[in-house]
């Protein structure tokens, strides 16, 4: 059996999920450009629509993480793969996927800059961001990478917690979920969570500490996820 076969879960995710999720970027970009056009018709565009809208994608990341542990994991086990294989390979995939999405979101800022420049609109970004200009491609990509990475991981362990052998773990997992979500907001300045701004003001951890904190948070999230899935049973679906 080739080594290639050992990464079957990752190959499956890369070949089926990655293209689909990346292609979602296109309608999002078109939709937000159209939204900016509508704003221009009825008023004045003086903020980046992209900057206002794309942080919402963290909720999509949360749902995708839950989808991985509640739907994909049982499927992989049913097809002869182990929880450990799934955990290792899906973690690598999620790290790569969120990296690609982070780059695409950063590209969105650049494209928006071009469109706004042509239209003569003002592309103001939110003050609390770790980045302060749309052409800071790598910094923006990095911020969205860690944001989506943490939120996907949070979704994964919440999904496992609420569907595992003991649903009580899901309730307990809410605490680290909130901590990691706040950490992602504080580290990147991509907030938008209710109450967090008021609680934390505009404090920022700075780039190195913020990113290292997020990566440490990712490691914690993976450890929690593994703790919840390592013996998770595959239940019979009754639908």
């Amino acid at each position: 059996m080739s080594r290639f076969r050992h990464w079957a879960v990752a190959r499956l995710l890369f070949s089926t999920h990655l293209p689909f999720l990346v292609l979602l970027w296109v309608p999002v970009a078109v939709l937000l450009t159209a939204a900016a056009g509508v704003v221009a018709v009825v008023g004045t565009v003086n903020h980046s629509v992209w900057d206002i809208a794309v942080p919402i994608l963290r909720w999509f990341a949360l749902g995708y993480g839950a989808y991985l542990t509640t739907r994909m994991l049982p499927l992989c086990i049913a097809h002869g793969r182990t929880r450990r294989e799934f955990m290792i390979q899906s973690s690598c995939f999620v790290a790569a996927l969120t990296g690609v999405l982070g780059a695409l979101l950063a590209l969105g800022y650049l494209l928006e800059k071009g469109v706004y420049g042509l239209a003569g609109w003002r592309q103001q970004l939110a003050d609390e961001r770790l980045f302060d200009a749309p052409d800071q491609f790598w910094l923006i990509a990095l911020c969205y990478w860690v944001l989506l990475l943490l939120w996907t991981t949070v979704g994964a362990f919440l999904g496992a917690g609420f569907t595992g052998a003991d649903e009580g773990w899901g309730v307990i997992a809410l605490l680290p979920a909130v901590v990691l979500a706040i950490l992602a907001s504080v580290a990147t300045g991509i907030n938008g969570l209710p109450f967090v701004s008021r609680l934390l003001g505009e404090s920022s951890l700075g780039l190195p500490i913020g990113m290292l904190s997020c990566l440490a948070g990712y490691a914690v999230g993976l450890a929690i996820t593994w703790g919840l899935v390592r013996e998770i049973p595959v239940r019979t679906r009754t639908s």
């Binding site: 076969r5 079957a8 190959r11 499956l12 070949s15 089926t16 499927l75 097809h79 793969r81």
Partner: peptide, 11 residues
């Protein structure tokens, strides 16, 4: 797609 998943996962 289900058969394709099986193809990926089952050696």
């Amino acid at each position: 797609e289900t058969l394709d998943i099986a193809r990926h996962l089952r050696p």
